[in-house]
Nucleic acid binder design. Structure first.
Lengths: 198, 198, 198, 198
DNA sequence: TATGAATGAGTGTTCATTCAT
DNA sequence: AATGAATGAACACTCATTCAT
């Protein structure tokens, strides 16, 4: 009995990611993916039941990686002060994104392709994983540690700032060392911190 | 191309926009557009030479509207203090976006569909129009009025904050009156303002 | 403005019918149909919105032809005695089927391919057209002119007898003149006629 | 092929039959069958060399069952009068079909799917098995016991009458007790019996 | 200006079948 | 005996685009 080729599943995901980064999520097709991996088109369906399933898996893999980079346990550790935890969260994403500058682009592309149906139950599931951060943020809002605006506004600020930075890096506009995490953190924290921040 | 019946040109754009908002930019097709307008498919090509051309025109129209909402003359008026001009700019976008909550979604969808080729010459053209704001921001950075981070980081913060807000409104998460412009402006300004801000 | 090529619609139907007769309804594919007509595959969708739509149209066309062959007005003419009307009905189908020995095969093949979903609303519509005959038969049952068995049993007897006969003819088992309508009518009528038949 | 595990061979046939009854013979696929049985797709090919082989075996099994229900020995027993033997034949099928209302549908579906090629050598083989009945009928025709029409016309009358009845039962249109065998036998016999019947 | 017709290339997906294990 | 992997061919259907009218 031949082993389920785990390598291939990953290679398919990698090919998909590569296409997304090069041509956009809308340009992903099973033909292109298969051609890139060097397998037959129908083979894709051995590892993913759908194109949606494939895209979703790439999305989930990317989110899992980001979360693995940060230390989730710390984020829920109530013995750590909220501002510290928020900083840890941002630091985690930032470091990962700078190391993997395609990561956030990937996430955003897939989200914008699939999320439009508004109520796509699959993406909802994934979002659920992110609830840890959302919960953390909501806590911080309630405690007055960060400003009283909708939490997804806070989150989108973090995301778009870091994403834009990594895009700039990828385009070679400047060097990673030109702007430190502190620079961005400072900017953001000055903006979002609430009356009870310190 | 692009002849007499201006009404129809607009109706085609409107239909395109509607499809983007409902199903995402990737779902736009000349068939759907034509059906929605009630014309024949080939008629679309009388007004737009391409599907890309069509999408681009919707993109440009939307950006033009936003800019028309703000007072561009003021933004370049050197007799007005930089912080004031920046506020005017944000206010302009904010007011327009709250009034037209689909606007930023439209822009983002098209950008993410077409912009991925990275070097799409058409979108580059459009970006040019936005140089007014970019120039303003760069000026502010140079003067130390806002922090020394890449200007597109500043801009993406403005964009994503307001966009997230309008999405929340459209989803009915809260009422427009629940969060004033001041709230968001305060947050953002606290974040981005530089040493020479006041 | 080019005229909607009515010829082609018919040619597509004809090709479909030919395939059904040669290989069975399950073997119909848009590729085969198009190839047979000498057009591109996608062209089929200009004339029929579906493969189902195409099959259905062939089905309906065949039924319409059969009904046009018989004189429907007579069947509902209450001044004509029931036995006479029943005979007219059988005669109509018989003559048409002998002249067009593929007709009943066509109908049966499509019915067996599409009708399995049991509740296919499209076929139901078509069956509706046949209600005229069903009504006639029910009348005859109620009047004791034909035996008290479910009307569709009566109808299937007529159909299968004639169908088998035409199949035999097509296979060249014997000549049309070898068995007259009278022969079959006699057989059937002796079977189905009720106590109040004469 | 066709090795040890007889249970599995049967289970595959059962699954096939179930699919035919639910979705029609054209919808049968080895994937679906395997899924239904809970085995791997390729396993099917251990028991049947073909999809055609599989379908054929289901067909043959069904015909064998029907024939086993009737007493074949009696049908060829020349000491029994022809009319009696014909009645026995009809009674056998009727009883079996009422008990197994899917039986005739199964046979018909497969016949219509495979038999269209007209000359399918496999089905021809099967028909051979039925020669016993055909011979009986031919004998009856020659003796003037039943009318002088092609024997397959006689046979199709029997088949379609009973089939329609069982379909009605399955659809719940009436109860099995509502129409006795006698009712149908009487109808049919009155129709087909020849000058030398009694 | 407007349209219906036409097409070729493309889409995602399913399938029957084979083969190494 | 049984399976997972693999594939090539087929499928229905959609699309952007062109062209004659």
């Amino acid at each position: 009995m031949r082993k389920k080729d785990l390598t291939k599943e990953v290679r398919i995901q990698d090919a998909t990611a590569a296409i997304i980064l090069k041509e956009g999520a809308a340009a992903v097709s099973t033909v292109k993916v298969a051609k890139r991996v060097g397998i037959s088109q129908s083979n894709v369906y051995l590892y993913f039941k759908n194109k949606d399933d494939l895209l979703l898996s790439v999305y989930q893999r990317e989110q899992a990686r980001i979360q693995a980079a940060g230390d989730l346990n710390q984020l829920t550790d109530k013995t750590i002060a909220l501002p510290v935890r928020l900083r840890l969260y941002m630091r985690g994403i930032f470091d990962y994104a700078v190391d993997h500058p395609e990561s956030l682009t990937l996430i955003q592309q897939i989200k914008f392709l699939m999320g439009q149906d508004d109520g796509n139950p699959l993406l909802a599931t994934v979002q659920g994983t992110q609830n840890i951060v959302e919960t953390l943020m909501q806590e911080a809002v309630d405690a007055g540690v960060i400003r009283n605006v909708p939490v997804n506004v806070h989150m989108s600020l973090v995301f778009s700032m870091i994403h834009t930075h990594t895009l700039n890096l990828k385009r070679g506009l400047y060097q990673p060392t030109d702007y430190s995490f502190e620079t961005f953190y400072d900017l953001l924290w000055s903006g979002i911190k609430g009356p009870a921040a310190d």
